[in-house]
């Protein structure tokens, strides 16, 4: 058996949780930067932020940490899921319905779709920004940035792409709703007073993240 399979179940869950929480912190930064595109018509704020993210040396180093976080979370999630399937070779005739956290049943499914979204998302933005050419734009302030904002606006004028984007983000929200509180439990954080708070906060947080990301393509498409 490979080394990754021989780690204990709890170790895997703890690492999965830490990677998940790290990815959540990334989502917050990502959303805040994305929201900038809605604030001015000439996309100066957004392009300036995108320029900073693409050139700051610290962010460049952190990019690799982020990649590592994604790979860790995806690979561990897959290993855990395969082990879970193997633990019950004969299924029940009547499906159980006593799960209290509904979306927990679909973590692998929502995860898989988010993964596909991630690949397309990468091809659309990251690869072009990193290796392709984006026309620069010079603002009245005298600053010149690559106009990444225009690329986004053009993509979000395609209705099919908007639908795909919105559905993927909704599934991400469901993934987060279970994942957020589950991460704390896996890390051993459970308290009669704070756990209900963590659960409520996680749900609200997932809703805010989801609505935030969804609002951008909808605003661009309809207005």
């Amino acid at each position: 058996m490979s080394k990754s399979l021989s780690y204990s179940s709890i170790t895997k869950k703890i690492v999965l949780s830490l990677a998940g929480l790290f990815l959540i912190s990334f989502l917050v930064v990502h959303l805040l930067i994305n929201m900038l595109i809605l604030f001015d018509d000439n996309r100066e704020l957004f392009n300036a932020a995108a320029h900073f993210m693409a050139t700051n040396p610290l962010i460049q180093v952190f990019q690799y940490v982020l990649f590592f976080g994604f790979i860790l979370h995806i690979v561990l999630g897959l290993i855990i899921q395969i082990q879970n399937w193997l633990a019950r070779p004969v299924r029940y005739n009547r499906k159980g319905y006593s799960e209290l956290s509904y979306f927990s049943k679909f973590m692998i499914h929502t995860g898989a779709i988010i993964f596909i979204f991630l690949i397309i998302h990468f091809a659309n933005f990251f690869v072009i920004a990193k290796f392709g050419h984006i026309d620069p734009i010079t603002y009245d302030s005298g600053n010149t940035y690559e106009d990444l904002g225009l690329l986004i606006i053009k993509l979000f004028e395609d209705g099919i792409y908007v639908i795909f984007y919105v559905i993927s983000i909704l599934l991400l929200g469901f993934h987060l709703d279970h994942g957020f509180q589950s991460a704390f439990q896996s890390l051993g954080i459970n308290h009669s007073r704070y756990t209900p708070f963590i659960k409520t906060f996680g749900t609200l947080f997932s809703a805010v993240i989801t609505l935030g990301f969804i609002s951008i393509p909808l605003v661009i498409y309809f207005f």
């Binding site: 179940s9 709890i10 895997k12 869950k13 855990i80 082990q83 879970n84 193997l86 633990a87 019950r88 159980g96 006593s98 799960e99 209290l100 956290s101 927990s104 049943k105 973590m107 279970h178 509180q181 589950s182 439990q185 896996s186």
Partner: peptide, 12 residues
Amino acid sequence: FGNCSNTYACEA
């Protein structure tokens, strides 16, 4: 045995 997904069906 499988891994814990924190669904809490066990407690229920």
